[in-house]
Amino acid sequence: MSSVETAILPGGIVSRPGSTADYKTGTWRVKRPVVDLNKCTGCLICWIYCPEPAILKREDGKIEFDYEHCKGCGICSEECPPKAISMVEE
């Protein structure tokens, strides 16, 4: 058997839970979200809406992004009440 054959279990079963985090989807991004911390109120609406989750909570209650997983969908920017997140070309 080739190394490829032994690398995958029958039917592509994934035997280790939580391994999706290893799959870096940040390369899909066309635009990246950038937060203006002066405007961010720490309401965490973006954190609730982010489908990934690629919004990380900072110690000061505001947010930052996990750019390794953020696909650049822009939902956070759309939903942010004070319009603190802008989408910037990569």
Partner: peptide
Amino acid sequence: MPMTFGAFALPDWYFEIKHQ
């Protein structure tokens, strides 16, 4: 012993899994 059956596979692995 949780495992994932029927996971999503993109162009990077779909072909190999189908080839099985």
